[in-house]
Design a protein around this nucleic acid. Structure first.
Lengths: 341, 341
DNA sequence: TTGTATGCGTTATCAG
DNA sequence: CTGATAACGCATACAA
């Protein structure tokens, strides 16, 4: 079924059919009716590839998600979905596998589907200036930003200071009297990620508080394809096995913290009485856990809203913006003060 | 940048460039080099819309997910991603909002991107024969199936018997001596969904065991946009407020069960000593909860694998298949036997 | 081995 | 108000 067939069936020209479909140009009510009925009778659906080929720009916005199964993204996805719909733009949510370069996909999609804007959620800190130029449409990075060497006017960003917040989490545990503090990594990579920055914050906090760094207190994930819970679970067991004197753990993501907490329970430890656990992100699940997990809460809602606002501002010709949000340390019950009174 | 520009830059014809890109037809090593360097120098990326327009069939497979933030889908998504990649096919994961008809999107995508197969994950039981004919490519429904009136040869399905499993969950609680059993709905809709079938199973179990149905023991969600945890949490509080004698709750999804469990703890109740909770789905989170939530576990891994197998079988000309898997009742610690000894 | 020409389904321009 | 017709970027049969 093509527009041509419909034109034939309705006894009109193809441009008339096109006008009916897109509400562009004038069509008499009579012919409109004819065309409409021909369309629905033949179940005609316009071909977007052909349309994209002709159109130079559309109202399509894409949200590239690096690892859509990551629960931290859930709330932001929901908000972005809603806000974009509210503004009358279609949203394309595109998952990007860990093994795939999200910028490649974004550039490809921008071209294929004539995107007018793109949001990159997750991802790394490795985007180069050249890539943004290639992309050549408004782009907002969410949860990451590009290297300082990249011209900031080429993109917007909404993120947090992962190093600082990693420091804050660790300092929190230190303030509660902990000295043997474990750290759980998901998958340490050579490229800078939010996770590696949080780790740097952990290291700095230890150093500034005069606590010697002990590599045996750091566990990281061997298999990259395991789910977050399981990674946290396994790594917690490892840490406990080789550090019986460990009194606290900082997991760089809530999902790991929950896995770690479960491991503690299985090992016969009580959280927080035997071991304190602090997570990162502030996903809902951490709140509903029992006990609720203390965490560094990213203001996901505000971040998503800012992201959308900035994106639409850029689409309307506004300048790029770079926002760094502060997190909130939520103290809820998974950490204990062990200072001697 | 178009293929034409590249041809010009490399001093060759456009068909030569095309041959290089697609490895179709013979090209001398010398010209291939020239073309390649022209491509990388100009950062040329072929336009997929144009390509799709020409090509009549591709190896693209789409996974339509009705509500990608649903954690139950996580594991299946990961498996499908892996299995499809393993077979050398590109996978497009497409989120479908609750307010959008997934079949519409599938048909549109099938046309626009020349899909060779599609998986519908989630969704409802409302697909008609006409829609499958329109789709006209191999299609596997995952977790649902179409009405009996639809010619089964038009599609495949991999699902469970939601009514039976809902019955099983309820019967389990009854066998433990519970008589005042609450039921938590996410969002009861008029169209048949897995959730409504599980509810039917709940009703039948009560009836067959001579327990009078009490509507005050059923709570359902008013706002559709709240997250699962919160819904479970709120509804549990409602149920408890009006049924102090309630000793057990069946939540039709684990995520609700977790929210309900947290509500119980907040209300000062212990799980399972004061109240038993059984969930449905078997998501990881339920396992890592403390206590681990008893649940009707869907064999997500096997279901995803079957789905892929069937899909590729159909793509290679095989017949459609319909599989119904049995769930497993996982008893782990959130339910208590209250039978008097 | 290479280049030219045609058409995929649309939209948009421009005469009627 | 309506209908030819020329692109859009690419793949491919066919000619060279």
């Amino acid at each position: 079924m093509t527009i041509k067939d419909i034109a034939q069936a309705a006894g009109v020209g193809i441009s008339t059919v096109s006008r009916v479909i897109n509400n562009s140009g004038p069509v008499s009510e009579k012919t409109r009716k004819k065309v409409m009925s021909a369309i629905s009778e033949h179940n005609f659906i316009p071909n977007n590839s052909a349309r994209n080929l002709k159109i130079s720009q559309s109202k399509n916005i894409a949200l590239m998600v690096k690892g859509i199964t990551n629960p931290f993204f859930n709330k932001m996805i929901r908000i972005i979905e809603r806000e974009v719909a509210l503004r009358g733009y279609p949203l394309l949510i595109q998952n990007v596998d860990y093994s795939v370069n999200e910028m490649d996909v974004a550039i490809q999609e921008a071209q294929d589907r004539n995107l007018c804007g793109v949001i990159m959620m997750g991802g790394s800190f490795t985007y180069t200036e050249e890539r943004f130029r290639q992309l050549s449409i408004p782009c907002v990075l969410l949860t990451v930003k590009a290297d300082k060497s990249v011209d900031p006017s080429l993109y917007s960003s909404v993120c947090i200071d992962d190093e600082k917040e990693g420091y804050r989490a660790t300092e929190y545990l230190i303030s509660l009297g902990h000295k043997r503090i474990g750290f759980i990594h998901h998958s340490p990579s050579d490229i800078p990620t939010p996770s590696s920055l949080r780790y740097k914050g952990y290291l700095r906090a230890l150093e500034e508080h005069g606590i010697a760094f002990d590599p045996s207190l750091v566990a990281s994930n061997p298999a990259a394809d395991a789910s977050g819970f399981d990674v946290g679970f396994q790594l917690m067991k490892q840490l406990h096995a080789r550090n019986r004197d460990m009194t606290a753990v900082f997991a760089h993501a809530d999902i790991l913290a929950i896995g770690a907490a479960k491991a503690a329970f299985v090992l016969g430890l009580d959280v927080p009485n035997d071991i304190s656990i602090v997570g990162f992100d502030g996903i809902e699940m951490a709140e509903y856990y029992h006990p609720s997990i203390d965490t560094i809460h990213q203001p996901a809602q505000q971040m998503a809203l800012s992201c959308i606002e900035t994106l639409f501002d850029m689409i309307q010709g506004g300048k790029s913006q770079h926002m760094t949000y502060n997190c909130v340390l939520l103290k809820r019950g998974s950490c204990k003060n062990i200072n001697t009174v």
